[in-house]
Structure formats: C-alpha cells, structure tokens
Computed example of a mutant assay.
Amino acid sequence: MERFVDAAPGVRLWTEDRGAADASPLLLIMGAQASGMGWPDALVDLLAARHRVIRYDHRDTGRSTWAFDQRPYPIRELADDALAVLDGLGVERAHVVGLSMGGLLTQLLVADHPERLLSATLIGTSALSEAPYVRPDGTRIPPGRLPGIAPRVLEMWSRPVADLGPEAEVERRVEHWRVLGGDQLPFDAEYFRALERKIIEHTGHYDAGTAHGRADASGLDRTALLATASVPTLVISAPAEPVFPPPHPDHLAQVIPGSRLVEIPGMGHALPPAVHAPLADAILGHTSGPGGS
C-alpha cells in the first residue's frame, strides 16, 4: 500500500508498506540521494514474509517533496522524518534497517529515540562516535585514522553531473553502482539498469539530486549515548565495501554495546541479487531475537 505522510510544514513523504498488516513493523531507511525504491523488491519481499516492511522516499528523492533550495535542513532532521513515517502509519515501535546515510540516521534513532526501536540493523555506515577502534592486539585507533573512502569512489563523486538526457543519466548511475559494488561479486549492469529505470519512472523525472550532499552534517556525534545504548543491534560487515571499509563495521560493533557482527560474503556498498538472501537471513535472524518479530 502506498500513501503520503506529512513530516513537516510543506514536506510530504512517499511511503509504501508490504506484508501482513499485523506483522511486526520493519522500517527501511535508504542512503543519501536515494529513493526508497533503492531497496530492491526481491529483498523487500523476503523481509515481508515475516514483517510489515515499510520503505519511503527521503526528502528530495523520489515522490517526496523536493524543496531543499527553498527550505534547507540539516542531515539530522532526516531522522525526524523517519519517526514521522512511523507516526503517519500508526507504528509505535519498529525494527529499523539503515544503509549508508540511512545507517547514520538509524544510529541517531538508537541514541535519541530508543523507545521507538525494536532492533537496529546497520549496513555500509560508520560510527557516530569519537571512541577509538581497538584492534585485536589492543592498539587504539582514532576514528579519523580508519580507512577512508576508496579513491575511485571519490573520483566519481567529484565529477560534475551534466544533463545529457535520461539514458545517459541511467548509464551514469549504473557506473556508479559498478564502483560502489566492489570487486568481489560479478557486476550485472542490466540488473542495475532496470533498477534505475524503475526509480526514474517512480520519481517522474531523472534529475540527479544533490540536497543531502549540501545539507548541514554537524551535530551528529552520539559518542556517550551510543556507548550506553540498549537497542539490540546488528552490524553488517561487507568485505568489498569501498565507502566504509573494514574495520568500520568492527568499530561500530564496539561502539554499541552487545552488537552482533555478521559478514555478507562479497558484499560492497550495493544490493545486487547475490546478497539478497544472505542479507535477509541475517536481518530476519536478528529481528527474531530480543525485541521479537
């Protein structure tokens, strides 16, 4: 079922939920500049076998309000949007799964609104904490010295985006996924081409959004609150991750007490078909634990 919810004055968010209406809610939070349609249907359906799965378009993506230039907002306000989605759909508490920027937003929810979460799953993100990473040999590494974004990703992100028409924009996005996917799984360009065409059809235009990259990213540190967090948390480790490569997942699992760390073989910073089943298994295994499913 699709519907819109009001998140703030002048801001409406597109939402969709699948699965039994009386099943335990599971909210999917996508990454920066990514529509909720970036969560592949096949993965959503695997999760919907056990949950009422909710996905939505961030502001300035998909069918939600595009108005950053008129009403700029900080990144942290997007976490409030996630709560607005739950409120608008009548959900008191939910399992929450966040990818990339969605993982940052999920950490904000873990820290600031733990009463709204049954569990959290963090994918392809870094810790909102200044606590050092402690290596197995006891060496303490400040977060700022952990491995950074791969040069090939930074180079792609530095390129200006020209409007050369819808098909050229699809191909640009496909190459983006090729780089984000890492180098351990075969890349299926046609799969991502079909995904992006569906996203463009859903959105109604092929404009490349830039709002989240321009939004204020201050005020995100949650070192103390994450260190005392009580939300059952799963951290997904992706060995081919080019944005937040290992040991970022290990650091994140250290930052949030009691976290479980699960590696998805071959995974990078993308959701190709090869990772759908193992990722769904990991998430469903987690949501069937503390907090209930």
Score class of each variant (00 low, 15 high):
149 I>R: 15
65 T>V: 04
192 F>D: 05
39 W>C: 03
23 A>H: 13
254 Q>C: 11
210 T>S: 14
253 A>L: 11
144 G>N: 10
122 L>I: 03
285 G>V: 03
212 H>P: 06
246 P>M: 03
205 H>W: 11
158 S>E: 09
187 F>H: 08
101 M>L: 15
116 R>N: 04
198 K>Q: 14
276 H>Q: 12
169 E>V: 14
91 V>C: 05
54 I>M: 12
122 L>H: 02
164 L>Q: 14
114 P>N: 12
288 S>T: 13
273 P>M: 11
66 W>N: 06
161 V>N: 04
57 D>K: 04
65 T>Q: 04
96 V>N: 06
107 Q>R: 09
99 L>E: 09
38 G>I: 02
29 I>H: 07
129 S>Q: 04
291 G>E: 08
281 D>P: 01
14 W>H: 15
39 W>P: 02
17 D>W: 14
266 G>T: 02
157 W>L: 15
179 V>N: 08
165 G>D: 11
171 E>A: 14
289 G>I: 10
241 E>H: 01
274 A>E: 15
274 A>V: 01
226 L>K: 08
125 T>A: 06
261 L>M: 11
203 T>R: 15
213 G>T: 01
173 R>A: 05
151 P>S: 07
219 G>S: 11
42 A>R: 14
235 V>K: 05
122 L>A: 03
170 V>N: 12
79 A>C: 06
215 A>R: 13
213 G>K: 05
243 V>H: 04
173 R>P: 00
250 D>K: 12
88 G>F: 08
101 M>H: 03
169 E>Q: 15
123 I>W: 06
117 L>K: 08
89 L>Q: 07
124 G>M: 09
161 V>A: 13
255 V>I: 07
242 P>S: 04
288 S>L: 07
58 H>D: 13
157 W>P: 00
35 S>K: 01
72 P>M: 12
285 G>P: 02
279 L>T: 08
260 R>I: 03
176 H>A: 01
106 T>N: 03
91 V>F: 08
281 D>V: 03
229 A>T: 07
195 L>K: 09
107 Q>M: 09
137 D>F: 09
148 G>T: 09
251 H>N: 08
110 V>L: 08
67 A>E: 02
94 A>N: 05
55 R>H: 13
137 D>P: 13
176 H>Q: 13
262 V>R: 02
233 T>P: 09
163 D>W: 10
142 P>Q: 12
